[in-house]
Write a protein that binds this DNA or RNA. Structure first.
Length: 202
DNA sequence: TATGAGATCAACT
DNA sequence: GTTGATCTCATAC
């Protein structure tokens, strides 16, 4: 049986539950996409979250119902894709940081002007360019075309770490990744396993 | 491998 | 006017 689609109830939970559950899920946009390998959770109590300072025209979608896309412009250049989650008092969302390209490789390469698969979607701005996601898709619901989200079939090994690319609340360990994936935007720091003292793969 | 400039927009001081 | 949930390219070691 085919993987189940993710519907709004999946997102109507705490970002801290939704974010790790997204690792291994499949994200398609107009048939182009792949497996989610890296996300970050942004809770409204977090100074680094866009919703922290209250509602503005840019972040208004975050304050709406769960299960919608929040797309914003980063550094004036790039687009970044988030999934709106449950409002635990105020708005929260999960930033999609990297996917493993699986479907529509030719279109991704054409949009990105690159051949190297590892660089197609390994970063929030890169994956939006590869999938053709832009500001006009802000507010789109995630369980209807052009979006399609499929639940993972097995729980993968997930690594956690501090978030990157931010300057506030950098210490919060709310970055989640698929262990040993070659498609992460940056490697997770080496983790010491207490029992054996061995390092995991970066 | 590592650092630095530049691109360019919404929010904030 | 400055900063930021970024990326690419250039230049230096």
């Amino acid at each position: 049986m085919p993987p189940a689609k993710l519907h709004p109830p999946f997102f109507a939970r705490s970002v801290h539950k939704v974010a790790p559950d997204l690792i291994g899920a499949t994200l398609l946009f107009d048939g182009v996409g792949g497996r989610i390998v890296e996300v970050e959770a942004y809770h409204h109590t977090d100074p680094a979250a866009h919703s922290f300072g209250g509602q503005t025209p840019r972040n208004a979608i975050m304050f709406g119902p769960p299960g919608h896309a929040y797309v914003y412009r980063s550094y004036g250049i790039h687009w970044c894709l988030n999934f709106v989650c449950e409002r635990e008092g105020s708005a929260s969302a999960v930033l999609i940081r990297a996917i493993e390209p699986l479907e529509g490789l030719p279109r991704m390469r054409r949009r990105r002007g690159l051949k190297d698969e590892r660089l197609l979607c390994s970063g929030p701005g890169r994956l939006c360019e590869a999938l053709g996601i832009a500001g006009i898709h802000d507010g789109f619901i995630l369980d209807r075309p052009p979006f399609e989200l499929l639940a993972r079939t097995k729980k993968p090994e997930i690594v956690t770490g501090v978030r990157i690319g931010i300057t506030k609340a950098m210490e919060l360990p709310w970055r989640y990744g698929l262990k040993a994936s070659k498609f992460l935007s940056k490697p997770f720091p080496k983790i010491v396993t207490p029992a054996r003292g061995r390092r995991s793969d970066p």
